[in-house]
Design a protein around this nucleic acid. Structure first.
Lengths: 253, 253
DNA sequence: TCGTACGTTGTACATTATACAACGTACGAT
DNA sequence: ATCGTACGTTGTATAATGTACAACGTACGA
């Protein structure tokens, strides 16, 4: 429950794993049945299919045909595993080359690449990355996305602010979209059905004289999109607003 | 783990509780030691102090001096309790009257009211409200916020889109700010210390030739704010971008 | 050939939400 | 006034979770 976050493990141990720094390769004992990449891949496959909730050490172990505690010889704990999953997902993102194109196109491409990331790995949108996994995947992603904002008259601090703003928007949108899917699956009710289930009961208690705007706008919004909120539409609408908002900062000549 | 969401309980039962519809008041049996408001208040106090993770049926029961299962006579389950907590928090929000003021001021006031809500109740920012608690608190909030957008040339659908966009931004910002606080408490490391703990290790693996922009911009952003990201600054920066983005839609005469 | 380093694993523990049944209170009918 | 019963309260039980701990067995180095 509550939100998951990256960067919760031991910093030193996490960095070692992220950059695959082999410190003191063991010489004795039985050979290892699996490797780190297999563990990360198994955990990611579980998360992709059934969400972060389904990623349990027992489940990961079961799909790898090892005992639960065996995982702890590959990874210090679940927190570090999460960072590895994240950085790997970042590393695998497609990165379109948009050099020379107008800034709106370049930023749209960055937004789209992240939107695709969240579609492939919805669980990534649920993670707070205030303390990101400082591995090769994140560094490549950061470098690539900064390049899309470089050369338009923004200073370094403004570039970082603008990128944070854009990515935060995409993540929030993707989180809403992912939650809509999960809610539909878990409750065997899609959003339309959920709102329909409330309509008759709500009509009884909701006084239109007390809430005239809510009744009018709510009805308009509800019939415009299928249900009360359409996450995909909200993303497309919002992305234009984000670009319009950043346009003020950009030197467009 | 993973994200919490509202609207997960039984719709009919939830609406009854939200609007305090007393169906069939019991005539027999012992008197009730507590009441619904006390349960909601106890759960909210726990969430305010220690986050949503700390809100367990056992903890709520303990602060109320009743057995755990007693709670289930006041509330069908935890999902419905969450909706009650949310709607109550909405109901208690301050709502400034801004009739006649310019649209930027009116929208800023709406953003601020929500920012204050998330400061008082950080757990609210962790909840996906795609299926919101359709109680008196949410309705009053929605009506109030729509009024701040009415009369500026936007049609009903655009009003709802713009409000969703604004609120989604404030929630995402508040979530980041709340996570920064929680991470600092849980790990006994504030963000600055966390980045400091990574710096020496990171310097060893991070090749500045491979990631020139990341090194340059990351350093600039890091020294501009205290740590790599300052959530409060990101909110103030982002709010201006949100307003600039919405300005395109508004009839400003 | 054998000691020991180390990968593997089963068990154990403190958590969680909540189903279920036993218990006891106090109202309504007689 | 008495008693049945409706209903609030509560202890126990269950299936999960992450991971600490100790036993086990493998295979390398001397």
């Amino acid at each position: 429950m509550s939100s998951e976050r990256s960067g919760a493990g031991d910093p030193a141990r996490t960095l070692e794993l992220l950059w695959r720094e082999q410190t003191a390769v063991p010489r004795r004992g039985p050979g290892r049945g699996r490797n780190l990449d297999e563990v990360v891949a198994a955990a990611t496959a579980l998360a992709d299919r059934d969400g972060l909730r389904a990623v349990t050490m027992r489940q990961i172990a079961q799909t790898l045909n090892v005992a639960t505690m065996t995982l702890y010889t590959y990874v210090p704990g679940k927190a570090e595993l999460l960072d590895l999953m994240l950085d790997t997902a970042y590393a695998q993102m497609p990165r379109a080359v948009t050099v020379g194109q107008p800034w709106r196109l370049r930023l749209t491409a960055v937004a789209e690449e992240n939107w695709v990331l969240f579609e492939a790995h919805p669980w990534v949108a649920d993670i707070s990355t205030l303390r990101p996994p400082l591995g090769p995947g994140l560094m490549a992603k950061y470098e690539h996305e900064l390049s899309a904002l470089d050369g338009f008259g923004l200073d370094d601090v403004a570039i970082d602010d603008a990128l944070t703003y854009l990515l935060s928007f995409v993540q929030a949108s993707a989180r809403a979209a992912g939650n809509a899917r999960v809610a539909a699956r878990d409750s065997a009710m899609n959003d339309e059905q959920w709102w329909a289930a409330h309509a008759p009961l709500l009509a009884r208690v909701l006084d239109q004289r007390t809430y005239p705007l809510a009744a009018r706008v709510g009805a308009a919004a509800g019939s415009a999109h299928g249900s009360a909120h359409d996450p995909d539409y909200a993303y497309r609408f919002g992305l234009q607003r984000v670009l319009d908002g950043l346009a003020v900062l950009v030197d467009d000549r």
